[in-house]
């Protein structure tokens, strides 16, 4: 990479960090305000003996009697140092609870994204380069499925086909509890390999496949909806025609030239849709009883679990923003058009 484009890349990355800091401050203020508007006293709800004195003592211990500004700065400082308090319900550290759930969700989300891109890009490229009609139909159909079929119903249909009729996949859960679950990173698919239990790998993939397939229609639709119009562009059509005329085979044409053209916008679109994908993951988890953060967050909200709401939500919002910024930065370094100072 030449020096000036490296500088440009770094400046762009710094700008993205600025966006991230802005999001952190904005979201933390919003969340803090929301907590202040909370109805009922969550502390009194949790105590076995809610007489005013005990409640006051407990509030004092948790620092809820300080002036609002002090409370806010304490909250912000604690969030940044990773001291997220204990859940009012399970009494376990919020960090532990959240991350054990979050890794399950991320495993599902990332597998779905991988799967969706894996079949979405070839379908889109085949469909756009004017080959078999079946790919055009497939690409159109996939683009529509995303908006027409609710993801939670699709999950049920997959269970009916895959578990009930074919009897190949389990109906729910992440792992078979007759075996000990290896614990290294929290991502089971990596953990079984790291723990040297290659024999369990099939089991993990078997549990993961249906939920990931269910969720993968969304990223696949995103990829297709981004690539397809670009390939219909007259300039691109001419490029395809001239490359074909020069005798490029399909593999070289798609892998070397068309993928490069489509790469940057696909990365941006995937990054932007990451939040929606997490939302879809929450629904998919409910269908497949996947032990992810969906049920955890819903429970925290319904039980008014202060510290989970304050810190868990802030972390997830930050995560979504970080992915968007990361995708933007990667796309920036991939796309020569953006580098030249275009949009």
């Amino acid at each position: 990479m030449p020096l000036n484009s490296l500088v440009e890349f770094l400046v762009n990355g710094l700008k993205k960090c600025g966006v991230l800091v802005g999001a952190l401050i904005g979201a933390s203020i919003l969340l803090f305000t929301a907590i202040q508007l909370l109805e009922g006293d969550p502390i009194a709800l949790r105590l076995k003996n809610p007489d005013p004195e005990t409640v006051a003592l407990e509030r004092e211990r948790l620092g809820l009697n300080d002036p609002l500004l002090t409370q806010y700065f304490n909250y912000f400082e604690n969030f940044m140092t990773g001291d997220w308090g204990r859940s009012l319900i399970t009494q376990r550290p919020v960090v532990e609870d959240l991350f054990s759930r979050l890794t399950a969700t991320l495993e599902l989300t990332l597998s779905a994204m991988f799967l969706g891109v894996l079949y979405g890009i070839p379908i889109a490229l085949f469909a756009s380069s004017g080959s078999a009609w079946i790919f055009r139909k497939l690409s159109h159909g996939l683009g529509v499925i995303g908006v027409v079929i609710p993801i939670f119903w699709l999950g049920f249909i997959l269970i009916v086909i895959g578990s009930l009729w074919l009897n190949v996949f389990p109906t729910e859960g992440r792992f078979d509890y007759t075996y000990d679950k290896p614990h290294v990173t929290g991502f089971l698919i990596l953990d079984v390999l790291l723990a040297g239990r290659g024999d369990l790998f099939g089991l993990v993939v078997n549990h993961l496949f249906l939920p990931a397939l269910c969720l993968s229609f969304y990223p696949a639709a995103v990829v297709i909806n981004v690539i397809h119009p670009r390939m219909q562009d007259p300039i691109t059509r001419n490029l395809i025609m001239s490359l074909k005329a020069r005798g490029f085979g399909p593999v070289r044409l798609w892998l070397k030239h068309l993928l490069k053209l489509a790469g940057a916008p696909v990365v941006t679109a995937l990054g932007t849709s990451f939040g929606a994908l997490l939302g879809g993951a929450v629904l998919t988890e409910t269908v497949f009883s996947w032990p992810g953060m969906g049920s955890f967050l819903v429970g925290a909200i319904l039980e008014k679990d202060l510290f989970v709401i304050e810190n868990g939500f802030l972390f997830i919002i930050l995560l979504v923003f970080a992915v968007v910024c990361l995708a933007d930065t990667v796309a920036f370094s991939m796309d020569p058009k953006i580098k030249k100072g275009g949009s």
Binding site: L31, I35, V282, V298, K304, V320, F321
Partner: peptide, 16 residues
């Protein structure tokens, strides 16, 4: 910024 936050999280926050 708002665009990046999924609807489900907005709904959950409203339920607070």
């Amino acid at each position: 910024g708002w665009l990046a936050i999924p609807v489900i999280f907005i709904a959950l926050l409203l339920l607070v």
